[in-house]
Every structure is written in C-alpha cells, then in structure tokens.
C-alpha cells in the first residue's frame, strides 16, 4: 500500500504485490517476444542459430514450450492485475479527461526545461501508455488463447484463426514498440527517479513534492 515515509524522506510508491506482478509481466513479455520471434520463423534466416549457445533457437518446439510457459505467467499476472486492482478500485492508471493535452505540456516542459504541470501519482503520459500496453497485452492474450485452443485440436472457424493470427503478430510488433518506448522514457533524467521504485518500491519525498504534488497532497490528507 502506498504511504508517506517522512522519517526516511521517502514515499512507498509500489507495494510488494505491485512490484511482483510488474516484474512477472515484464519478464514474461521478454520471454514471449523472444520465443515468439523464434516461431515466426526468423532466427534461422537471420543466423541467430549460428551464434554460440543459441543453436537451440532453431527448434520450434523448444521456443513453443518457452512461449507457453511464459504465457501462463503473463496470463496469470495480467488477470491478477485486473481483478486485484478492480476489486480495490485502484484507478490511478486509468486515463482522465485532458490527459492527452497534459502529456503534450509535460513533454514540452521536459524539452524546453519549463515548469511541468502538477501531477498525481502517475503522469498523464503514463496513464496513456498504460492503456496502450494493457490494450496490446489484452489483444495478445485473447488471440493467443484462440491460437492455443486451435493447437489443442479444437476445430475453429478458419477466419477466426486467420485474423487471430494476424492480430497476434500485430500485437507482438506493438508490444515491442511499447517496451522500447517504456524503457526509452528513462532517457529523461526526471523519470530516472522513478526507476528504483520498481525494485524497492520507494521514491524520494522531495521528488514527489516537486513533481507529483497532487499525489503528495492526497497522501498527506490520508496520513492525518
């Protein structure tokens, strides 16, 4: 649970549950992207299989097994995320009216060195990015489940299989873009302050006061 840790000069931004689910999703996505590209098939074509230690990537059944194992983790973690935070009504990442314009203002301020508008726990662009990532993962999970059902021997309509496959491939491209953009956000020095919280959960109190003043006021009210 998020809370002010004033004696430490910190704020607990992400509790252990959130951090575990985040890393389960992140790591499973890395494995899914790697094993998924192995299924495309591109590793033999692009001679990845010739690299020392990577000969096994030519075996579609090894990469398929990896894909399934990682999919179990991703599906579990994603459903957990939705159900857990849905019940708790944790809605900080749900986009709000005006988020697009605010994102533009934040980016403009970052580029020009100007004053950013005050933010809640999440920046407006983080809320928008969340929708992109969550939507893409939802498409990947739904189409992946259809593909899994097909591979288990169930006879499905040809069109459903075809379009699920195309959407799954498109989703894979979008998630790679999303991951690159997500990691790319840490090029911005201000965002680096948030990086540690995905490991130990905490961010500096002064940083929160400065950049997430709306959230800070809420936390203060709650701690009274």
């Amino acid at each position: 649970m998020e809370k002010l840790l004033e004696s430490e000069g910190k704020v607990l931004r992400h509790d252990r549950t959130v951090r575990i689910i985040h890393w389960l999703i992140a790591l499973s996505c890395f494995v899914l992207v790697f094993s998924g590209f192995g299924q495309m098939p591109v590793y033999k074509r692009y001679m990845i299989t010739d690299l020392p230690g990577l000969t096994w990537t030519a075996d579609y059944f090894i990469t398929l097994k990896m894909h399934y194992v990682a999919a179990v983790i991703l599906v579990f973690a994603s459903f957990w995320h939705v159900v857990y935070h849905g019940i708790r009504r944790d809605n900080g990442l749900v986009p709000r009216k005006g988020d697009f314009g605010e994102s533009v203002r934040i980016m403009k301020a970052i580029i020009t060195g100007g004053q950013e508008p005050p933010s809640d726990k999440y920046l407006a662009e983080q809320r928008l990015a969340y929708v992109f990532m969550a939507g893409t993962i939802a498409v990947l999970i739904l189409t992946g489940i259809i593909k899994t059902v097909k591979s288990m021997g169930f006879v499905l309509p040809e069109g459903l299989v075809f379009w699920s496959t195309q959407l799954h491939n498109l989703g894979a491209a979008l998630i790679v873009f999303g991951i690159v953009a997500h990691l790319g956000a840490f090029i911005v020095p201000a965002n680096l302050k948030l990086l540690g919280s995905m490991f130990h959960g905490k961010v500096d109190l002064e940083y929160v006061k400065h950049r997430h003043s709306i959230w800070y006021e809420k936390l203060k009210r709650r701690s009274r």
Binding site: K65, V69, V72, V75, F76, F79, V83, M152
Partner: peptide, 13 residues
Amino acid sequence: WATGVLLAPVAAV
C-alpha cells in the same frame, strides 16, 4: 502447458 494457459485466468481470478 497449453491447458495451463487456459486455466491461468481462472487461477488468477
């Protein structure tokens, strides 16, 4: 493992 993928949502819920 494929069955695991289909059961994961139920377990997670």
